[in-house]
Design a protein around this nucleic acid. Structure first.
Lengths: 216, 216
DNA sequence: CGATACATTGAACAAATTCAAAGCTGGTGG
DNA sequence: CCACCAGCTTTGAATTTGTTCAATGTATCG
């Protein structure tokens, strides 16, 4: 296994003694694309540090649809809320690529973690990031219309259309493939964007595009 | 002004020197019911500690409707995400009752805050709470149907119907008053609940009630 | 008692998903 | 080389879930 605790920026502040203790209560685990790391509703026993790959966080609705929340890339702490609060995971996590996590027996580590000011700072950063992510999810899903979501995505990350299929993009912004298709057609028709045969999007009228999702 | 820094559990760990510094860069402000503390989109300059009253956090959608996020009661830190990250407030805050906040010039305090392990711990707790709140908002608004929201509210907090008007309850769970009315009628009709003339709800079939919002 | 707010009900509307069918596209094997 | 198939995309129609609008009914409280 080529992974090492030393390579995790998160623990750079731990002294050798603490690192030894951490080594004893943690291990690396690799995953293949598609494998689940934890499931919504499960009680947590481990804290996760994503060290390799892309890990998708999602919820499942009553009809069995996945609602995309976020995709993490290394190095990220995952599952801290459930661990800190001893509550079931509020979402599921599945690897999109192959990857690896460090699994930590959190309870055994709690003291070392919260006593160490450097680690506390890291935790604060991680939690702050989560609040920001969730706050964005709320804005995205409760405030923006489908058209606004598409407009925002194009404005902020038009290149994604060259990289992945509309299919997958629709999943990421939580709209149906049909709605995405119809919205793109509408934007083209309104001369706000154009799309070539290689899925390269050209923004013809950025002001109009922004107006579709800014303010509200 | 009857408020004192000493009464804020949050700062119990600060030494006299730090307290003095804090005193110099903070002040208490009282509000009447209905007054705004900050507005979605504004850039933050101050960090807030709610010390009195009920403070509602909400977002505004494109049609000008308020989307209820949470109501804070003392003692709560409010606005830390925007302050830590130097980003616009993602939501607005308005007092529901009369109340008061401590306003802190955050930048001047940052070092004292993050260096002190007790305060770091408090910040971690506060952020953890925020993640939990937002996670619940997402579950509530993206997973549950209107009927599920009403069922959950009745199961967890049926007494609220005796305390406030359906009107207000509808706002809190983000459904229209009409939808709430129709859902209550349906639950009564299905013999899952009954409501007397004083708005006291009796749950006749708790299993059926739970089934309406548990799993999904 | 009468004004004002709150609750209920039905009908129209809105936004997006679902379902179904048809059109493309790109890679593979014959 | 091209015919085919599987997987995307597109399009239209039906459906779903809730809000909005309007009217009426019911409390409540000076």
């Amino acid at each position: 296994m080529p992974y090492s605790l030393k390579d995790i920026p998160f623990f750079s502040a731990l002294d050798d003694q603490a690192l030894k203790r951490l080594e004893r209560i943690s291990y690396f685990k690799t995953y293949n694309a598609g494998e689940l790391v934890f499931y919504e509703g499960d009680m947590p026993t481990k804290l996760y540090i994503l060290v390799d790959g892309v890990l998708r966080l999602y919820k499942t609705d009553s009809k069995g649809h996945e609602i995309y929340i976020h995709q993490f890339t290394p190095t990220s702490m995952v599952g801290e809320l459930a661990n800190f609060e001893q509550i079931p995971f509020p979402a599921s996590a599945r690897f999109i690529t192959k990857g690896a996590v460090l699994k930590i027996e959190f309870k055994d580590m709690e003291e070392d973690f919260f006593k160490n000011p450097e680690i506390s700072m890291q935790i604060i950063k991680s939690l702050t990031r989560k609040v920001k992510i969730l706050s964005n999810v709320i804005h995205h899903e409760m405030i923006l219309t489908s058209e606004a979501k598409v407009a925002k995505l194009i404005d902020e990350n038009a290149e994604i259309f060259e990289k992945i299929k509309n299919n997958q993009i629709a999943q990421i912004i939580n709209v149906s493939a049909e709605t995405l298709s119809r919205t793109l057609t509408k934007l083209k028709h309104n001369k706000i964007i154009s799309i070539d045969d290689k899925y390269v999007i050209t923004i013809l009228d950025r002001d109009a595009l922004k107006k579709l999702y800014i303010d509200l």
